[in-house]
């Protein structure tokens, strides 16, 4: 039986460089997996392939049994909004929308907006008092919590996080990681988290280490 995430012989070549050089990876559903490695090792590229934001030049990516190569651009968009939640290093919020609207934007693209549900999601990440604040009125940690709420509002099966604490101080990093841990325990979605911070990677159940576009180590922590 195929794992929830399966990557087979994935290569990603750009005009001047190869970001991935034959990656094979299987992640079971509900697992929290950290991908670590130095800059340029291919972590983010692998994460983009898993999220359908990019395609491998060679190899295959299966998510929940679906070969992403077979999806058209619109099918891929639908796949993303139904199955995947993203958290990026920068908060990447729409600057002119309030926290609530930023979360509801994800609902809008998914199906239909429900402000009470969006409000509840923000309360779950501790931002019940910041519903109508714009990103510029929030701290970095608060902004990232909004992206967590936005990523999870449509109950995705996978949460893909690319250096989610890269711009945060230790205190806020801890807050975010505790939040992710709590939500993961409650909902058991699969997490693939890219980081180069050992403090962050240790929250996972499995750590995959990459270097020069290849997986060089794969160790379960639990």
């Amino acid at each position: 039986m195929m794992d929830f995430i399966t990557v087979r012989g994935a290569h990603r070549e750009y005009q001047t460089a190869s970001a991935l050089r034959g990656v094979d990876l299987e992640i079971a559903g509900g697992v929290w997996c950290s991908i670590v490695g130095p800059s340029g090792s291919g972590k983010s590229t692998l994460l983009n392939l898993l999220g359908g934001l990019d395609s491998p030049t060679k190899g295959q990516v299966f998510i929940d049994g679906v070969d992403l190569r077979t999806l058209s651009e619109n099918e891929m968009a639908r796949f993303r909004r139904e199955k995947i939640g993203f958290i990026f290093q920068q908060s990447y919020l729409i600057p002119y929308l309030s926290s609530l609207d930023n979360v509801m934007l994800s609902q809008y693209f998914h199906s239909m907006t429900d402000s009470s549900e969006a409000e509840e999601a923000l309360k779950r990440v501790g931002l019940g008092h910041r519903l109508h604040h714009r990103p510029s009125e929030l701290s970095g940690g608060e902004q990232q919590r909004v992206t967590v709420a936005r990523a999870l509002i449509n109950s995705p099966k996978i949460l893909l996080a690319d250096e989610p604490t890269g711009n945060l101080d230790r205190e806020n990093t801890k807050l975010i990681m505790e939040l992710l841990k709590r939500l993961h325990e409650e909902e058991r979605f699969t997490i693939v988290l890219v980081t180069h911070d050992p403090f962050v990677s240790k929250w996972a159940e499995r750590i995959v280490t990459m270097e020069d576009g290849r997986i060089i180590k794969d160790e379960p922590l639990y």
């Binding site: 651009e73 968009a77 993303r80 909004r81 693209f109 998914h110 449509n154």
Partner: peptide, 16 residues
Amino acid sequence: LDEIGLMKAIGADGIQ
């Protein structure tokens, strides 16, 4: 560009 890119990343399709 950032805004449109983000919208597409979080699931906006061509029609949207």
